[in-house]
Design a protein around this nucleic acid. Structure first.
Lengths: 223, 223
DNA sequence: ACGATATTTGCGCTACGGTCGAAATATGGA
DNA sequence: TCCATATTTCGACCGTAGCGCAAATATCGT
């Protein structure tokens, strides 16, 4: 019994692995590369750590394209982390910057080259409500509305990549719009300055004009 | 934050230290030597581990004579241990033998050379109830009853060691009788075969005759 | 098919920590 | 005072594990 506990504790007993678990605590899934940057180690190092966490079923992985999204497998790892944290001598105030970044990522972010997060999910749902996209597999039903909005639908259609498909959003647990069409929509939204991409992260800020425009043009309320 | 968690987790991430915590989980306090035997390492090794656990405030120590009793400082360490244990892959059945030994130690055991555990505490309380011992500091008020019972009170009085004093009982959180008088009482109880000492541990078994005798002679109910 | 990006694997280097034996320290009891 | 027992400290050995570099593998998008 004690041997097993020691082995499990060893998974938490490394600064890098503890950072990985801390980064995943809120239930989001992050790519290996994002975790490497968050923990300030190379991709090789983070890969080795993720492998160990994976083998112990502390985390789960889901491949999505060339990314591999890692998340905590269940609530047990988080509970153990918290039980250990209460034993930590000094209680450093939870990094405000860190949590601010996490919050902004949840609000809106890029996923590859399309919009994700709360805004991405809401926009996709608005497209479905307006009949622009079909509810199942996000087929484009009404190209004219997007074209008149300035989205280069034709170019997106000529691209060899997937035209439009749903992509599971990890912070919202719902789908947002991916594929060439999703990329074209994001491009247009940035062009209009309805969205502004953060330089150092995947976060995207919705401007006042963007919030207003999304509501009036697509009936999309960002809450 | 993650660095601190890693450091704390490191305390659990060693087989020996995990065994120490597991041995203390039920709230009992054990001596350094007992822990060394339980973990199958030398006294030097256990001492180093206890030092680390002590500096992290995971355990607390109380010196009692030449023994040093270690116990978990509070419930946090136990909670963390359990949170880690639920992550351990296989769940080895809790050793029956181990828990049987623990139960018998709680029932009755020797502490140095006197009786401790449930039986020790109950007997001391019975002595106080009967006016044999005073309630404060356990002074011997009625030597005759013990002498007629066969306890060599005279020899105990001539010993240079402390004659009679209360000793905090870790499993009962009450006091039992220590000192030369306590040793003399234990000697007599074993002599009468009211108690039988285990060969390999500090456990003491109360015989049927002992249970009966303690009740009729001293009004001591062992529950 | 090709280049770019993401991730994993193999390898060697280094450092940290767990272990024990021996010696030092503390306490109890004769 | 002296010996026995309990515990800690010191010093050295050794295995393990984390690290980055470089190369291999996988997938995307043109």
């Amino acid at each position: 019994m004690d041997a097993d506990v020691a082995a499990v504790a060893g998974l938490f007993a490394d600064r890098t692995r503890a950072s990985v678990i801390a980064a995943l605590l809120d239930g989001r899934a992050l790519t290996a590369g994002e975790l490497a940057r968050a923990c300030d180690v190379t991709a090789a190092t983070i890969s080795a750590h993720l492998r160990r966490l994976l083998e112990a079923d502390l985390v789960a992985v889901e491949a999505q394209g060339r990314h591999r999204y890692y998340r905590l497998a269940d609530e047990r790892a988080g509970r153990a982390f918290e039980a250990l944290a209460v034993l930590a001598p000094v209680r450093p105030v939870r990094s405000l910057r860190q949590s601010r970044v996490a919050a902004s990522l949840r609000a809106a972010r890029t996923c590859y080259d399309h919009l994700a997060g709360h805004a991405g999910v809401r926009l996709a749902e608005a497209f479905v409500s307006r009949g622009i996209l079909g509810p199942d597999g996000f087929p484009l039903l009404d190209p004219d509305t997007l074209t008149s909005f300035g989205v280069d639908v034709g170019a997106a259609g000529r691209s060899r990549r997937s035209f439009a498909h749903p992509c599971l959003d990890w912070s919202e647990r719902r789908h947002h719009l991916a594929g060439a069409l999703g990329a074209a929509v994001l491009t247009r939204l940035v062009e209009l300055e309805w969205l502004i991409r953060d330089r150092s992260s995947r976060a995207v800020r919705v401007t006042d004009a963007g919030r207003e425009g999304l509501r009036t043009r697509f009936g999309c309320e960002l809450g």
